[in-house]
Design a protein around this nucleic acid. Sequence first.
DNA 1: TTAAGTGTTGCTCT
DNA 2: AAGAGCAACACTTA
Length: 266
Amino acid sequence: MPELPDVELFRRRLSATSLRRRVVSVRGSDRRLVAPLAPKTFARKLNGRRFVSARRYGKYLFVRLDKGGWLALHFGMTGDLRYVRRGAASPAFARLLFEFADGGRLVFADRRRLGRLRFVADTDDFIAAQRLGPDALSGKANLRVFKATLKTRQCGVKSALMDQGAIAGVGNIYSDEILFQAGIKPKRSARTLEDKEIARIFRQMKRVLRTAIARGAGSEQLSERLPPSFLLRHRVKGGKCPRCHRPFRTLKLGGRTGYYCGHCQS
DNA sequence: TTAAGTGTTGCTCT
DNA sequence: AAGAGCAACACTTA
């Protein structure tokens, strides 16, 4: 689930609820989630800290801690970040809870446990070490850079869009939408796209991601909140193209399923 | 009931 | 050495 728009909504949620408040207790016992630290060590390092700001880059969320350093969160396939008021029930699959003095808590939920939380000294160093490309919504992801990146890729355009080292933030779901809006088939070779087509993909990438954020299309209500003209509203087995009403086709890429319209995309 | 499917990254093999 | 495929995970759906 969590691609750029989802993580951006997590960032806003955290900023609205959890900044400048002291963490009085950290609960959670999943070893893999906080590796290489042990859960106890992880909790001790965070206990008594305050979150002072939050930054997103691609699919990563960074939370700055008072007294220095950052917490880096990655949500894997099923991660979610929720704020829960005192007395209210935690969401299902809650794996890690940051509790504040008034009983409110920030909860990292993750059904499949593929998410990760770790301490990092500097976010830019971390981003460089991870070899992430420019964030899809930043000014650094401009048409000139985008064109140069796609032209050097041997793979299909959908794979290129999902490559975090090319552009950070786009995954399987949103790459489907971007290519649908741009009218480009997913398996077209990235290298042989015309300049005009690349410009279309670039423009739609920005528009689709901004629209998803503006509509609050995170996690559960992803499709319902998006415009009916979006592929994502109809991205189910047997779903039909909102433009020509023909059934969508699917393709497999290393175990992931992609959707596209064989008529409207070329 | 059993097996296939699932929005991620990272590792292996070619 | 870039690109493809699968493992990791654990739960849901067919």
